[in-house]
Design a protein around this nucleic acid. Structure first.
Lengths: 337, 337
DNA sequence: TCCTACGTTGTAATCGATTTCAGAAAACGG
DNA sequence: CCGTTTTCTGAAATCGATTACAACGTAGGA
């Protein structure tokens, strides 16, 4: 592999001059430029980027921490981030934590060991006080998650409000007994639960604790939980889920049990993923502005890297949408309207 | 940021000794080891990995080229590769080509500029003769794609056979007019088409060129193409698709037009993605061994990197499965059996 | 006691680039 | 034609690690 020294020798010039040509320094005569170019071509020279990184003290690489790639929500989020990164000549190091605290910490080390110029966290497993210290080692942004007392910039949707609206929609369809499957311990999930609870309380509806479910993520979880719900004494007539995957699983399980959606049991999803339109009945869901989330998070991070200014706290809230389809609106009713 | 020199100074030792402790060299006394460890702790020292990369001439990073992350097939493939990579302390640089020839070439440069130790190609856009030369710059593996005359190792499924079996299944259900939507110009697609054609020919069935469709990838494409198919004079009664996404789109469009699947039009998918079980009727499909593909490709690449031996050509063929569900088997028929 | 062998440590070269600084050459003004 | 400024180029330091080699000290054998 040819190095800059080889090019210099062949061109009969110094390494410094070659480097100048490489970086378009103004003060090099056309003559020497040509010599250098010819030598580079002849030797098939390509600068070694590791050496450049060491010398320039930057990597042009951003780490993105996601739980899993196979969750479409994160795939689309990454897609949006990638668009912006590419435009800015940045590489993405995609890090799957698989919901492991240890892996998360390992990946955060990337910032400390200067393997990346910045980092985006799209969810986290550890306590925030374990994570925050890493933000001292390099720019960091929180996307789709949040933390109240921190200087790390946050880009997210108002989960509380969105959940409130979603739950209220179910109530407006006449449901009084509504289950909720969005609760794990993340702040995001807590917000969703809080939104759900407030909507219920505002309409004077009681929430039974046996209607609340945690750790419900995918299609199989959805099937399992729906069967549990239908077996409850005085079973709920609607479910506010935290994910389209879960809602889709519920619809499948309901049909398998001979129950009609939404007449026997109504279901609302979250995200508006492609699957929402594929299931039958199609899913009423809360659209998240995924592209906006990813795009904005990346832009904020790039700003942070460029200006190296002390992170002044900022929180960007993006808008949601309630998308009403068939899994909450009885066809009979909608015709009668 | 503390460097190895700072540690050395604080420990009252040389950089060499610190480095030896870092790399568990045997010949360092416990005494000095302790001194070094204390200094490292005190200074919060972490080795700069860029410097290590430069010195050691390796990056411990693998590039994976995929068209898009949002296609679940590739998400699952990456998931499998990530498992093996993580186990081997390797980082993955995930590169989305978005079906762009230029981007593909840009990413291949990673190998030439020594930014990665190896590269896996999961599909490609350029001519193979554009791509092959890059394999001279570093280890490269082809996964889920193939090329006849090359020394680059190949890990794939027999698309020809799988498509033959899939098409034959449709024929066995009594279909004689079968459309095919798997044709673009990749070798993979050509194989699928060839398998389809052979199955048809073996049963003495004719293939009309207007039944063949190219560039059909996602749900929307599926909807669009199905409408076209149903508008043909003497419309086909079955479709052999190249993807579960497409097949799912077709089922939705068929239902919207009041057609029954599989009685009016039967559909077979490809991949056995989660969506295959979600749609109604559920999809008959050809299961690809995604985990095996990803895992094996990564293992072969790691071997290649470790032994630096000249790539002896190898081609690994993994098995497929025909998964029969409702989109090809009329309920009436299956009951009557 | 002297010589060899081995274990331990440090010095300095190295990986492949960029950049400061200083000197040479060219341009310019009077 | 000389002094000053500007433009161009190269030598050498630098980024932060690893490692070949040399040097030193100590233990063991004769």
């Amino acid at each position: 592999m040819a190095t800059i020294a080889d090019v210099a020798k062949r061109a009969g010039l110094s390494r410094a001059t070659v480097s100048r040509v490489l970086n378009n320094h103004p003060n090099v005569t056309e003559d020497k430029k040509r010599l250098v170019r010819e030598a580079m071509e002849w030797l098939n020279y390509v600068p070694n980027s590791t050496a450049q990184r060491l010398r320039n003290q930057k990597t042009d690489t951003i780490a993105i921490l996601v739980p899993v790639l196979t969750n479409p929500f994160f795939a689309y989020l990454l897609e949006a981030m990638d668009m912006v990164a590419t435009k800015n000549q940045l590489q993405l190091l995609i890090c799957q934590t698989r919901y492991s605290k240890q892996k998360e910490l390992d990946f955060l080390e990337l910032l400390r060991t200067k393997q990346v110029d910045g980092l985006i966290l799209t969810s986290y497993e550890n306590e925030w006080k374990q994570i925050e210290p890493f933000s001292a080692f390099g720019p960091m942004v929180l996307c789709n998650e949040y933390e109240r007392h921190t200087k790390v910039p946050i880009i997210r949707m108002n989960q509380f409000e969105a959940s409130y609206i979603g739950t209220r929609h179910l109530i407006e369809q006449g449901h009084k007994r509504i289950a909720c499957t969005c609760g794990d311990k993340s702040n995001l999930a807590k917000d969703r639960q809080a939104g759900y609870r407030k909507a219920m309380a505002d309409q004077g509806l009681l929430v039974e604790e046996e209607w609340m479910f945690s750790n419900v993520f995918d299609i199989e979880d959805g099937k399992r939980v729906l069967r549990t719900i239908l077996n409850l004494r005085e079973a709920p007539t609607a479910v506010f889920t935290g994910s389209d995957q879960v809602a889709a699983g519920m619809i499948m399980a309901a049909k398998a049990l001979g129950k009609k959606v939404p007449d026997d049991i109504a279901v609302i999803g979250f995200d508006d993923q492609p699957i929402a339109k594929v299931v039958e009945p199609s899913l009423t869901t809360i659209r998240q502005p995924i592209e906006e989330l990813g795009k904005t998070a990346m832009e904020v991070l790039i700003d942070l890297i460029a200006y190296k200014k002390d992170t002044k706290h900022q929180e960007i809230l993006l808008p949601y949408d309630l998308v009403i389809r068939d899994s909450t609106m009885s066809k009979l009713k909608s015709i009668s309207i």
